[in-house]
Simulated assay, not measured.
Amino acid sequence: MRTEEVLAAIATGLWRWDNAAGTVTLDAEAARLLGLPAEPGSYRESEVRSRFHPVDWNEIYAVVNLAVAEGTLAEARLRVVDERGRVLRTVRSRSKPVVPPGRDVGSYVLFGTLQEVAEPQPGSTDAAHTPITGDWRRSREAFLLDAGRALAEARSTAEVLRVAGSLSMPGFSPDGLAVFGSAGERLTIIGHHGHSSDDEEPFTDMPLETDYPAAEVVRTGRAIYLPSPDEYRRRY
């Protein structure tokens, strides 16, 4: 039997997550486990992210970042959900994050496996344990220690934003972060994360009178919350 056939027989798939490129490559079994067409393919990170419970997705980010820092494996259990948020199955991820030469620490590539695991039966001892990862890093104290260490080790605005992005709230995992400032009557970009260098060009010389959220915040001193792209288009 081929390796792929053996892995499929034990409900185990292979995945490759390129954090910098924002792409996830899946073999046929990994795609099936995530509720996608059972065939090899490459997907945008947002497509794969939508297949996981938002709380678990944010946790795997924290686990992977710690594994990168310590040079260890990243292990977690993740709930796979459908379009309505209903849990389809639980999978165990066991992966090795690697930072390719020439990239910074936050631009890793994750190689690993996804394996379906049986749900505990009601009334069993395992059923009483609600944590998905079952890892000490889930505790609030450990989370704060990890966050504090990561922020203390950050050497630039971009690294601070990368850490801040990994500390996002459950259900809110931002694709990018940017910090704006002002110089005279112009909007400036102090730093950004999750965007390419070309993305900042339209904002590098923007007058404060421009009808744009960051410019309005600088003018008024009041925060703006835009709950949807439609609301953004309506207001700006």
Score class of each variant (00 low, 15 high):
residue 142 A to N: 13
residue 215 A to N: 09
residue 56 D to Q: 04
residue 88 L to S: 10
residue 106 G to D: 06
residue 198 D to N: 13
residue 223 A to N: 07
residue 212 Y to G: 02
residue 234 R to H: 12
residue 129 H to A: 15
residue 231 E to N: 01
residue 42 S to V: 13
residue 152 A to C: 10
residue 186 R to V: 15
residue 144 L to Q: 09
residue 77 R to P: 05
residue 112 G to P: 12
residue 93 S to V: 13
residue 123 G to F: 00
residue 177 L to Q: 04
residue 109 V to C: 05
residue 191 G to D: 09
residue 106 G to F: 05
residue 75 E to Q: 11
residue 189 I to W: 07
residue 102 G to S: 02
residue 90 T to P: 05
residue 58 N to P: 00
residue 156 S to R: 04
residue 56 D to A: 01
residue 212 Y to E: 15
residue 7 L to Q: 03
residue 74 A to I: 10
residue 131 P to I: 07
residue 99 V to C: 03
residue 195 H to T: 13
residue 235 R to Q: 15
residue 14 L to Y: 10
residue 103 R to C: 10
residue 183 A to S: 15
residue 171 G to P: 10
residue 204 T to W: 04
residue 178 A to V: 11
residue 196 S to T: 15
residue 43 Y to S: 07
residue 53 H to E: 09
residue 180 F to D: 12
residue 182 S to T: 15
residue 125 T to R: 14
residue 42 S to L: 10
residue 121 Q to C: 09
residue 77 R to W: 06
residue 83 E to W: 00
residue 154 A to T: 02
residue 112 G to Y: 06
residue 151 L to R: 04
residue 225 Y to V: 09
residue 189 I to F: 10
residue 166 S to D: 12
residue 214 A to C: 11
residue 101 P to A: 07
residue 170 P to L: 09
residue 230 D to I: 14
residue 206 M to W: 00
residue 207 P to E: 12
residue 115 Q to R: 08
residue 218 V to C: 01
residue 24 V to F: 04
residue 117 V to D: 05
residue 33 L to F: 12
residue 57 W to P: 00
residue 175 D to Q: 14
residue 111 F to P: 11
residue 107 S to H: 08
residue 17 W to P: 04
residue 177 L to H: 05
residue 229 P to C: 13
residue 129 H to V: 12
residue 163 V to Q: 07
residue 42 S to I: 08
residue 222 R to L: 12
residue 176 G to E: 08
residue 90 T to A: 08
residue 3 T to E: 15
residue 28 A to N: 02
residue 217 V to G: 06
residue 2 R to I: 01
residue 63 V to C: 08
residue 201 E to G: 12
residue 54 P to G: 12
residue 176 G to W: 06
residue 114 L to P: 00
residue 68 V to F: 01
residue 117 V to F: 06
residue 141 E to T: 08
residue 103 R to A: 03
residue 119 E to V: 03
residue 216 E to W: 11
residue 59 E to D: 13
residue 115 Q to F: 09
residue 179 V to W: 12
residue 139 S to K: 07
residue 213 P to N: 08
residue 181 G to Y: 10
residue 31 A to Y: 04
residue 103 R to T: 02
residue 145 L to I: 09
residue 168 S to K: 02
residue 8 A to W: 11
residue 207 P to H: 05
residue 126 D to R: 01
residue 135 D to I: 08
residue 108 Y to H: 08
residue 219 R to F: 07
residue 46 S to I: 11
residue 119 E to Q: 14
residue 153 E to C: 07
residue 33 L to C: 06
residue 212 Y to V: 07
residue 196 S to L: 15
residue 83 E to T: 04
